[in-house]
Design a protein around this nucleic acid. Sequence first.
DNA 1: CATTGCAGTATCCTTTTAGTAACTGGTTAC
DNA 2: GTAACCAGTTACTAAAAGGATACTGCAATG
Lengths: 118, 118
Amino acid sequence: MEHLNEKECKSAGMAVRDTLEIISGKWKLILLLTFYKKGKRRFRELVKELNISPRVLSKELQELEMNKLVTRTVRNTRPMTVEYDITPYCRTLGSVLQPMKEWGELHRQEIIGKKNSE
Amino acid sequence: MEHLNEKECKSAGMAVRDTLEIISGKWKLILLLTFYKKGKRRFRELVKELNISPRVLSKELQELEMNKLVTRTVRNTRPMTVEYDITPYCRTLGSVLQPMKEWGELHRQEIIGKKNSE
DNA sequence: CATTGCAGTATCCTTTTAGTAACTGGTTAC
DNA sequence: GTAACCAGTTACTAAAAGGATACTGCAATG
């Protein structure tokens, strides 16, 4: 964020906050990473694998779906199943997550790494 | 995050989460942007300008300070004052905030922009 | 020596977020 | 028909985050 005036700064803040809220919460990142690693997943699978309560899972998935980060697909199987998976669009989040990962690692050095040496 | 194995993925997730937690919360971003825009600020100034309760402000500033994102400087003035300001290190957060801003703006298009056209 | 301004804490309260557990409604399998 | 899965919801509880307000301790001012 280079040299912003008042207005630019406020709208930049809003955009950052939007992004922040979308990936905030205890489960958002975990869910996205689960889909990323293991591919599509059914509702019950997620409940069992992650030990998340169905109530919370339902809410989180709805929010992710609203933001077009995951898709919800109903399958006509014997007992009906619903598959969730990340969207191609979700991959664009990489441009945010990658820097966050790098900064997080750098920061760990900055904080812990220098704890003793100073 | 390109093609991570199980372990890499988990540690990447941790780093992302670390970063996320540091800038999460109702006031962190607002505080950093305030320092960025207006420079150093005293405790009472922040309380008044932002309408934040001293209790919460105190906590937020402590957390930011622990993460070396802001400095706390005691001044020997008539009534003693304390100045807070962002550190040079804090500027490295730009590498995270800039992509977050860009993605946030893109996302606003993706979500709102296409609400009508589809 | 009461009043004001400062930084911050202590106490209590409200709101938000997350979790538990029981339940609905539908389908198949016995 | 009843037991067993599925995807979720409902109603309640617990924990975390945030807020309001009064207060402490210190120094200068009047």
